[in-house]
């Protein structure tokens, strides 16, 4: 299989600070690949290196089989980039945002106009084609930014936190459009800290923490490897959950005490819940749920807040 991104020991340093600390990544054509991690994990730095706007400080990197140090413009002409913050042109109308951007790729004006109309249709903004950008909602602006990333019919689209800050309806619409792109054979590379986003969209992902890759695989495989099948969330009425922790000893693979509840990582949630009742511990509430990528993520990168 052809690798669109091939990185070995990739490093990015800013002075003394090492943002990306020797990562190996391979992304194959047609894949949807995700970089997960808390803030400051090195996701955006990695994305900028892949987007050929940030030269690597060390290691090997090849994008579309080319060397970003030498062939930056050539690689960028075949990529689509959707940045974390919308940088649309507020003076231009919706259609012009696409047509002027298309010109940077040397696309003839006529073709640019036609493609702009097709893309506005694709992101469901046709009716706003002649309106200004400013009054558009956050979701509309994001869809326009995604459309702009597609004007050059890219082989690979880089999306830095594509749905951060959007309301649920807007998020689902963006996901659905991205899924459509993937079906058309476009390779998607995205960063996110939304676990549901990663589970929805990514075939494969890496979890980054402190500039390193701490886990890699499909969402399913990661859950199997780093978590149990199910999780039981217990809330006790008492002030401290701590006191109940020892009484639960021996239940499940792993137990985690949080300020407001206790998590039991088990294979069979209902059985474990029954056992809790059997020990007559009477929690105020019991919730049995399937293990999610979020459990994996928090297990790997910790619960400490990173700002």
């Amino acid at each position: 299989m052809e690798s669109l991104i091939h990185a070995r020991g990739l490093v990015k340093r800013f002075g003394e600070f090492t943002a990306v600390d020797g990562i190996d990544v391979d992304v194959r054509r047609g894949e949807a690949f995700g970089f997960l991690g808390p803030n400051g994990a090195g996701k955006s730095s990695t994305m900028r290196m892949i987007g050929c706007v940030s030269p690597p400080s060390g290691g090997e990197l090849r994008i579309l089989g080319l060397d970003p140090r030498r062939d930056g413009p050539r690689i960028r002409s075949r990529l689509g980039v959707c940045p974390q913050l919308d940088n649309l042109d507020i003076e231009l109308n919706v259609r012009e945002n696409l047509t002027t951007y298309a010109r940077f790729f040397g696309i003839p004006r006529k073709v640019a106009r036609r493609r702009a109309d097709e893309l506005l249709d694709f992101v469901q903004l046709s009716e706003r084609a002649d309106s200004k950008v400013e009054p558009l909602s956050g979701g509309m602006k994001r869809r326009l930014t995604i459309a702009r990333a597609l004007v050059n019919e890219p082989e690979m689209v880089l999306l830095d936190e594509p749905t951060t800050g959007l309301d649920p309806q807007a998020r689902h619409l963006v996901w659905e459009r991205l899924f459509r792109l993937k079906q058309q054979g476009v390779t998607l590379v995205l960063t996110t800290h939304y676990m549901d986003e990663a589970e929805q969209l990514c075939d494969r992902l890496v979890v980054m923490d402190g500039g390193r890759i701490v886990a890699e695989g499909s969402p399913r495989a990661l859950i199997e490897q780093y978590s149990t099948r199910e999780v039981v969330e217990l809330r006790f009425a008492a002030e401290s959950q701590e006191a109940y922790a020892e009484k639960l000893a021996g239940l499940g693979d792993r137990l985690e005490v949080l300020p407001d509840r206790i998590l039991l990582y088990v294979d069979d949630g209902d059985e474990a819940a029954a056992e809790v009742q059997g020990r007559s511990l009477a929690p105020a509430s019991v919730l049995v749920r399937r293990s999610s990528l979020e459990d994996v993520f928090l297990h790997l990168t910790g619960r400490t807040l990173v700002d």
Binding site: G51, V53, G72, P73, R74, R76, S77, L79, V81, P83, L85, N87, L88, D89, I90, Y101, F104, F105, G106
Partner: peptide, 14 residues
Amino acid sequence: WLKVYFAQAAAPLR
């Protein structure tokens, strides 16, 4: 504020 240059830098421009 508008980040126009950054959008241009992502295109095949030097």
